[in-house]
């Protein structure tokens, strides 16, 4: 049996909004560690890894490991019926082909349950190797979203280059070119407004902007985003989920052959 109670139900709503554009169907895996998901987009260019640790739930019961296949648009339809301040409980019985989402209003005067059919999804888990990244950039998530949006009105791809000068986002298209440089900036009022660049060595990689823009759907989950880059490795765009875990998006680079 599975029963997960999340007082801050809006987190789950935001998680679904963050990934449903990228991934259509996915298996949600429940174990003693937490509630997790690993899935790729249909063209296998991007991968999303979600972890919500069991300690982050008010109540977490998972008697045995369970993998639940869901259509993310359908999950999103269900969760959009929950109020932003609602407590959300996810329930499933062993061997059942349904999952139940229960929504409780904060003062307990409204309780709703939505039962959704599960589906069988063939998916293989990929081993994500631990890597030392050549450069790690932490910046306000809203700033990163703005940059991706702005550049995608000019071109289709972004070159992200990290040097000791800062991090540069460049694109080129039919109408012209654009370069946005963000320098390290630690002298800000709030730590979440800082741009911090940890560089072992300079790195420059090319990525499809369409996917980057899709990742920024996770912006409401975190004030900051961390971008980890290494030559010949997928970039990692990570949004931490307060006290609970993370969403990490991996995007394979475009490489000159």
């Amino acid at each position: 049996m599975l029963e997960l109670r999340l007082v801050q139900g809006s987190l789950l709503k935001k998680v679904l909004e963050a990934i449903r554009e990228l991934v259509t169907d996915a298996n949600f895996d429940c174990s003693a560690t937490g509630f997790s998901l690993q899935a790729m987009d249909s063209s296998h260019v991007a991968l999303v890894a979600l972890l919500l640790r069991s300690e982050g739930f008010e109540h977490y019961r998972c008697d045995r490991n369970l993998s639940m296949g869901m259509n993310l648009n359908n999950v999103s339809k269900m969760l959009r019926c929950a109020g932003n301040n609602d407590i959300i409980t996810v329930k499933a019985d062993d061997g059942s082909d349904t999952v139940t989402f229960m929504f409780e209003s904060p003062n307990q005067d409204k309780i709703a349950d939505f039962e959704m059919k599960l589906m069988d999804i063939d998916s293989e888990h990929l081993g994500i190797p631990d890597a030392e990244y050549q450069a790690i950039v932490r910046m306000p998530s809203s700033e990163f979203a703005r940059i991706c949006k702005d550049l995608s009105s000019i071109g289709d791809t972004v070159i992200i280059s990290v040097t000791k000068e800062g991090v540069k986002f460049s694109t080129a298209g039919d109408i012209g070119t654009a370069n946005i440089v963000c320098r390290q900036n630690k002298t800000v009022d709030k730590p979440e407004e800082a741009t911090i660049i940890e560089m072992q060595e300079p790195v420059s990689l090319t990525f499809a902007l369409r996917y980057m823009n899709s990742f920024t759907k996770a912006t409401p989950l975190s004030e900051t985003v961390t971008i980890s880059l290494s030559s010949d490795l997928p970039v990692v765009v990570e949004y931490k989920i307060a006290e609970m875990g993370y969403i990490r998006f991996y995007l394979a680079p475009k490489i000159e052959e």
Partner: peptide, 14 residues
């Protein structure tokens, strides 16, 4: 023109 790679080139199946 740089060619789009896929994730499986970098991450092996478990």
């Amino acid at each position: 023109k740089p060619k789009q790679q896929t994730i499986s080139r970098f991450f092996p199946p478990k």
